[in-house]
């Protein structure tokens, strides 16, 4: 009885194999051939820009706080119009585990994971990417979002009350009902 069952199982296995003969190979010869990665692939993080071309990062430090390997280090600075930006932003990719927590935590959609995942250098210290290497020129996966159009702070080209969903500034001195 058990011998019969074994033969049936063997036959089924062979049939599964034979069924695939007509199809092509599902492996590719990486790295000669490029991989087709899904858009939500978690590769190395980059800093994106908003639709106006300015950097999105406001140096809120949530990415460095949430990072389980503590590989992100940044220092906040201020521009003349009091807009916050990261003076320095470095990610140590020899520690990064591509978990994507930073992307999830980022309130301004600045840090986004690219599809780049295989990169190598000769020295460990070359894995420490500074801001110049991290900042890309595009908007990444979110082409329209601009944090400062929604946040209530004033900037050089946007006064109080000019953000989305804001009413004009009230007169705090008025006693009218």
């Amino acid at each position: 009885m058990s011998a019969y069952r074994s033969f049936v199982q063997l036959g089924l296995g062979l049939w599964t194999t034979l069924r695939q003969i007509g199809r092509g190979a599902s492996t590719i010869s990486y790295p000669e051939e490029a991989l087709k990665l899904p858009p939500r692939w978690r590769g190395r993080p980059a800093l994106t820009r908003d639709p106006d071309g300015d950097e999105r990062c406001v140096a809120c430090q949530l990415c460095s706080a949430v990072c389980p390997t503590r590989c992100i280090e940044l220092q906040a600075g201020e521009r003349e119009d009091e807009r916050r930006y990261p003076v320095s932003f470095r990610i140590n990719f020899s520690r990064c585990i591509y978990c994507g927590f930073c992307e999830e935590a980022c309130p301004t959609l600045a840090i986004q994971l690219l599809d780049e995942f295989a990169f190598s250098t000769e020295h460990h210290q070359d894995f420490i990417y500074e801001k110049e290497a991290l900042l890309i020129d595009g908007t990444g996966k979110h082409p329209h979002y601009n944090f400062y159009r929604h946040a209530g702070v004033a900037l050089h080209d946007k006064d109080k009350g000019q953000g989305s969903n804001e009413s004009p500034p009230v007169n705090g001195r008025s006693n009218l009902p």
Binding site: A154, K160, N165, S167
Partner: peptide, 10 residues
């Protein structure tokens, strides 16, 4: 609430 928010000058 999706209405406009009150703002102030600083």
């Amino acid at each position: 609430y999706s209405g406009p928010k009150r703002t102030y000058h600083d």
